[in-house]
């Protein structure tokens, strides 16, 4: 039995444990094949739902029904009206045929992880699952990896899932990161309005992040920002005093964690709150992801939330 098969068997055995609903990231880490992980996670939790949630914003036609006052007139079928001289409303049941583009931050800081997976590996799993999910509902999937510029690009297409998964697999943490320039370039390259999933640890001032997302938001894209943070970054659980080195800049400073912890956790929480507030004001969908949480739990909560948002919209 291969390592991957053993890991999947172990994961499946966990599903049977009472109270154990989601998959441990450490188990997923032992499966090398991203497509396998994506298929396993996505199919696994979809089978646990009563019906398929949906992510996109374009529509899958289901049936016609007669127009009633109070119906949303945007769903009126004009072509049918032209033929029959009667008003009919199109009804939809799922969203399809959207562009879904993953924008993955591959800066050096994403290579950090203390809970079995680095943030980049975790982001790869999330991206692979959502790309697989979008492909499953017949959306076009694309991929962009960025540091201070665009590193890798796969244009969105209904046939590019494998390209996206390979590009995800190739992604390695490297150098410094800054979102402004690569996101501006992405906005210039994506003419069709798309769902853009941005996976990053957002180590920039909140205002800069908001400004970086500005061109994409102004172009009418549906923006989803997943802010990945390791538990050690959130809680600063270090004990021993020593020198801390920045993974991106290589800068070093001496630190006594016990004395800095309170202030540090305040600052990181303020940062998360500021990012959430500013992105919320810009109608950007924001989710803070703790990389110690199971991937499918994050996915599950996120997709249900998207579905509720679709209902509201």
């Amino acid at each position: 039995m291969s390592d991957a098969a053993r890991a999947i068997a172990e994961a499946k055995s966990q599903e049977g444990v009472p109270g154990r609903r989601f998959l441990d990231p450490k188990v997923l880490a032992r499966i090398d094949d991203l497509e396998l992980v994506a298929r396993f996670v996505v199919e696994g939790f979809i089978s646990g739902l009563h019906r398929s949630p949906h992510l996109g914003f374009s529509t899958d036609f289901a049936e016609h029904r007669q127009y009633m006052p109070g119906d949303d007139i945007r769903h009126m079928d004009w072509r049918l009206y032209a033929r029959t001289d009667r008003f009919f409303i199109k009804e939809y049941e799922a969203d399809t045929n959207a562009n879904f583009v993953v924008i993955l931050d591959v800066s050096g800081s994403m290579g950090y992880g203390t809970s079995g997976l680095t943030k980049l590996e975790y982001a790869k799993y999330l991206a692979a699952c959502l790309a697989y999910f979008s492909h499953r509902q017949r959306d076009r999937v694309g991929f962009v990896s960025v540091d201070t510029d665009i590193v890798d690009y796969v244009p969105p297409s209904a046939k590019h899932l494998n390209h996206v998964l390979h590009a995800l697999d190739r992604a390695q943490p490297r150098g410094r990161g800054s979102l402004a320039i690569p996101l501006l370039k992405v906005s210039e390259s994506q003419h069709r309005r798309s769902i853009l999933l941005i996976l990053s640890d957002l180590y920039e001032p909140a205002e800069k992040i908001r400004d970086a997302l500005g061109p994409l938001r102004d172009a009418g894209h549906d923006l989803v920002v997943m802010h990945l943070l390791d538990p050690a970054e959130l809680n600063f659980t270090f004990d021993a005093a020593g020198t801390f080195e920045d993974l991106e800049s290589g800068e070093r400073i001496p630190v006594v964690p016990g004395r800095l912890r309170t202030r540090y956790t305040e600052l990181i929480r303020d940062h998360v709150a500021a990012v959430e507030r500013l992105l919320g004001e810009g109608r950007v969908d924001y989710l803070m992801v703790d990389t110690s949480k199971p991937v499918d739990e994050v996915l599950f909560q996120y997709l249900l939330r998207r579905e509720r948002m679709q209902a509201v919209r």
């Binding site: 800068e251 630190v255 202030r263 540090y264 990181i268």
Partner: peptide, 18 residues
């Protein structure tokens, strides 16, 4: 000792104590 950390962004803003 050297501990690798993703970013010193928030550590640099914290007053250092020995």
């Amino acid at each position: 000792e050297t501990t690798l950390f993703p970013s010193l962004m928030f550590l640099l803003r914290t007053p250092y104590q020995h």
